[in-house]
């Protein structure tokens, strides 16, 4: 490849990187502005970096709002991810390996649930939750989050499982391994990447939720971060909390960026179900 072409690719890469990272850079820059600088209209802080916004939400007056929300977001999303991966692991195994009527129905249902408008079911869920005491609790969010994460987990994982050479299990058994050994030594290592990838993507989906978060919670007992972003206040009732929102936005973006950077290859494979090589 000629140097000219190489330069071309590198420029192309830079353009794409700018496209993807620019808004992120902006919100980071905004979060580092001092309150006086917020309305100055520049991209970068004009008067130097200030950590005020971070101390406000981490240790200052907004920390009572933000820290519980952060804990809720992590806890609820992790549990929802775990449950949905756990349930769909069995479902995906059945879909990939077993022949039984209703397979199409299950996949079809997953598809239907995936395209479901969340807003349509929020009110009935709210009514039901307050009757059975799930309103503003962790399970009250975990259960609806399953409607977001389960369909995706089933689809992604069954596609992964289809690619597993299951006959190797029998081969191992022929070689003298017990059923359990064959499963543990052969199948688990083969299936683990798919399960793990599914978990990451499911976590993203749960982490992204907003409608359930604002509708089914009302206190720090269960309110997740996206819902809490709208609750910050400025120095007084009427002052805009731009800086606090920006800082909180940066903090909730850090975990997903780390996940992306570390597991980018798996995530792409998961999103496109192993169709991409390279």
């Amino acid at each position: 490849m000629s140097t000219k072409e190489k330069t071309g690719w590198i420029i192309g890469g830079i353009v794409i990187a700018l496209y993807a990272l620019f808004p992120i850079a902006w919100i980071v820059s905004l979060s580092l502005k001092s309150s006086a600088d917020l309305n100055a209209g520049g991209f970068l802080p004009a008067t130097g970096f200030s950590w005020d916004n971070y101390s406000l939400i981490l240790t200052g007056s907004a920390s009572d709002l933000f820290l519980p929300a952060l804990r809720n977001s992590f806890g609820i999303c992790l549990i929802a991810t775990f449950i949905s991966v756990f349930l769909s692991m069995f479902a995906a195994y059945a879909i990939a390996r077993l022949d039984f009527p209703g397979k199409k129905f299950i996949l079809g249902t997953a598809l239907g649930v995936a395209i479901f408008p969340v807003i349509s079911i929020v009110t009935p869920l709210f009514n039901l939750w307050r009757q059975i005491g799930l309103y503003d609790t962790w399970p009250g969010l975990i259960i609806p989050y399953l409607s977001l994460t389960l369909p995706l987990s089933i689809w992604t994982m069954s596609a992964f499982f289809r690619e597993i050479p299951w006959e190797m299990e029998q081969a191992a058994q022929v070689d003298g391994a017990t059923t359990w050994q064959a499963f543990r030594k052969v199948i688990v290592p083969l299936a683990a990447p798919g399960v793990f990838t599914t978990a990451i993507i499911a976590f993203f989906i749960a982490w992204n939720d907003f409608v359930y978060g604002i509708s089914l919670t009302s206190t720090g007992a269960s309110r997740p971060v996206p819902a809490a972003l709208g609750l910050f206040s400025g120095a007084s009732q009427f002052e805009d909390p731009t800086g606090a929102i920006a800082a909180a936005a940066v903090i909730v973006t850090i975990p997903v960026v780390i996940l992306v950077l570390v597991f980018q290859r798996r995530i792409v494979a998961g999103l496109t179900n192993g169709a991409v090589k390279g």
């Binding site: 690719w9 993807a20 992120i24 982490w207 973006t253 995530i267």
Partner: peptide, 28 residues
Amino acid sequence: ALKAIRPFLRAVILIPYAVITVVSAFAW
């Protein structure tokens, strides 16, 4: 794209996908 920059592009392109919609909306 060049093999060398492919992982980089893939990671970069995934970031908007992973960012919370509400955060993206506030940023814009």
